[in-house]
Amino acid sequence: MLTATKLTKAFANDVTAVRSVSLTLEPGRITGLVGASGSGKSTLLNILAGLADADSGEVRLNGERVKGPGEVLVAGHPQIRLVHQEYQLMPNVSIRDNILYAVRFMEKTYRESRVDELLKRCRLVDVQHRQPRQVSGGEKQRAAIARAVADKPAVLLLDEPFSHLDLPNRLVIRELLFELIKYDRTACLFVTHDATDALSIADTLGILRHGRLVQLDAPATVYHKPATVYAARMTGSVNILKGKHLPVLGLPETNQPDALFCLRPEQIHADPSGIPGRVRAAFFRGSHSEVDVELSRYVCVRILTTRSDLKAGQDIGIRVSAESVWPLKS
Rank of each mutant, 00 (worst) to 15 (best):
Q314A: 11
S20D: 15
L165Y: 04
H269K: 12
R142Q: 01
L51W: 09
R174D: 02
P168L: 10
G57T: 02
Y298E: 10
Q267Y: 13
A17F: 09
L156E: 13
V248W: 08
L241E: 00
V214R: 01
S113D: 08
V74Y: 11
V191R: 00
L45T: 00
S37H: 09
L249V: 00
C188F: 05
V125E: 15
V125R: 13
A198F: 15
S237K: 05
K41Q: 01
L7E: 00
L100K: 02
G70Y: 09
V83L: 07
I99T: 02
D166M: 12
P69F: 06
L310S: 04
Q256T: 10
L23N: 00
H269E: 11
R174E: 14
G28F: 07
C188I: 06
K108T: 04
G76N: 12
E179I: 05
H288P: 04
P27W: 08
R297C: 13
D151P: 08
G57M: 07
E253S: 12
V103Y: 10
D159C: 03
I275H: 08
I80Y: 14
K329Q: 15
L73G: 00
L157W: 12
I316T: 02
P219I: 01
L100Q: 03
S330R: 10
I181W: 00
Q314K: 07
A220R: 06
V238F: 10
T204W: 13
S237W: 03
R142S: 01
R209Y: 15
F105H: 07
R280E: 15
L304S: 04
E175D: 15
P276F: 07
E26Q: 11
D292W: 04
W326E: 07
A231R: 02
M106R: 14
C122S: 08
L295M: 03
V66L: 06
E64K: 12
T186I: 15
A144C: 10
Q85W: 04
R212L: 12
L33D: 02
R209S: 15
K225G: 01
P252H: 09
R19F: 13
T24Q: 12
L249P: 01
C300N: 04
L119P: 15
P27G: 04
L241D: 01
P276W: 11
V34Q: 10
L118I: 00
P132D: 03
L82D: 05
T43Y: 12
S289F: 09
R233Q: 14
A227P: 02
L89C: 12
F284D: 14
V293Q: 06
T204N: 14
R297S: 15
V74C: 00
I240M: 08
T306H: 08
D151V: 07
V320S: 05
L176C: 09
L156C: 07
L310R: 03
V248S: 02
I268L: 12
G313Q: 02
A49M: 04
L167R: 09
S136A: 07
T186F: 13
A281H: 13
P132H: 03
I145F: 13
A102H: 04
I316V: 06
I173H: 03
G57I: 00
P168V: 06
P272T: 04
D116K: 00
P168A: 04
R114D: 08
P132C: 05
D151E: 06
D315S: 14
R29D: 12
T221V: 09
Q131A: 03
G38W: 09
I145A: 06
S324A: 15
R81V: 00
L118K: 00
V18N: 08
